[in-house]
């Protein structure tokens, strides 16, 4: 077990406040099949922020993510990316889905799956190869470049999906319970890896999870939602130093305090 080194500095709170808004939701309602899924959501995600979204299942976390991805238009209100309304998916906003098995092309090798992004961009074949290798190396899949997804473990398939998103060179990551289907060991490894990748590139992250400890461990801020209809209920700032450490961080009083608060928040519904 090695401690991942993360170069990202701890930002003073006021600096975080000053960063421009990457993703902005304003008065957002979503109605699907005559059902009010989201009601009056106001939420800003600032540039460079790692925002974790928690809440009971069915509270509209994924719907909020799909709005940010441009996969779904709001029924009312506005969703903006860097101040401009989102109407279509953008290549610099990457989405990591939980069901990596369905999100990859099973008939393409690991390298082929990454290549898809570059092909879609219209990059000449000669340029693609080295780029693909670079991206696969970043997630530790270079030795498995010629394997098909079915030949990779679940953790490796999720790494591959992350690699494909890396190829998009995203400014924003939208992650929908990306590690929910993985075993604890793999999940921990990937959590540290995603923090390293994000720190290196300074990207904004919108991370949906139902795992409270994961939210605290990863996030700069945890936003909690409530269901029926889905709405933003409370925001928790995570004032834990970075780089975070697998063993030390969860033992800090601040971590334990937040964990207690979040459990209380979730329990309040029952």
């Amino acid at each position: 077990m090695t401690v991942t080194s993360i170069k990202r500095p701890v930002r003073p709170d006021d600096a975080a406040e000053a960063a421009p808004v990457a993703l902005g939701f304003k008065g957002v309602d979503v109605v699907l099949a005559d059902k009010l899924i989201l009601a009056g959501v106001d939420l800003d995600v600032r540039q460079g922020e790692f925002m974790c979204l928690i809440g009971a299942s069915g509270c509209g976390k994924t719907t909020l993510l799909r709005l940010a991805a441009g996969l779904l238009p709001p029924t009312k209100g506005e969703v903006r990316y860097l101040g401009n309304p989102i109407s279509e998916p953008r290549r610099d906003v990457a989405v990591v889905f939980q069901d990596y098995g369905d999100a990859l092309l099973p008939w393409r090798t690991a390298a082929g799956n990454v290549s898809l992004v570059y092909e879609t961009m219209g990059m000449p074949a000669s340029e693609r190869k080295s780029r693909i290798e670079g991206v696969l190396a970043k997630v530790g899949l270079l030795d498995h470049a010629e394997k098909f997804p079915a030949q990779l473990s679940g953790g490796m398939q999720q790494r591959l999906q992350i690699a494909r998103c890396l190829a998009q060179e995203p400014a924003v990551w939208l992650m929908d319970e990306p590690f929910g289907a993985l075993d604890a060991m793999t999940r921990h490894a990937l959590q540290d890896e995603i923090m390293r990748i994000v720190a290196e590139s300074g990207t904004t992250v919108f991370f949906v999870t139902h795992d409270l400890e994961e939210a605290i461990y990863l996030g700069d801020r945890v936003v909690a939602m409530k269901p029926h209809p889905g709405r933003v209920a409370q925001t928790f700032d995570v004032k834990l130093a970075r780089p975070r450490d697998r063993r030390l961080t969860p033992e800090q009083p601040e971590f334990l305090r937040l964990r207690r608060e979040l459990y209380d928040f979730i329990e309040a519904d029952h």
Partner: peptide
């Protein structure tokens, strides 16, 4: 799979690219 259609949209694939890289291999 609906998920693959979403991925195609997210990557900004043209209709042509979708047919040749996703739909046809899926039909294979």
């Amino acid at each position: 799979k609906p998920r693959l259609e979403e991925v195609s949209r997210l990557l900004g694939m043209s209709r042509r690219k979708f047919i040749f890289s996703v739909a046809l291999p899926n039909a294979m």
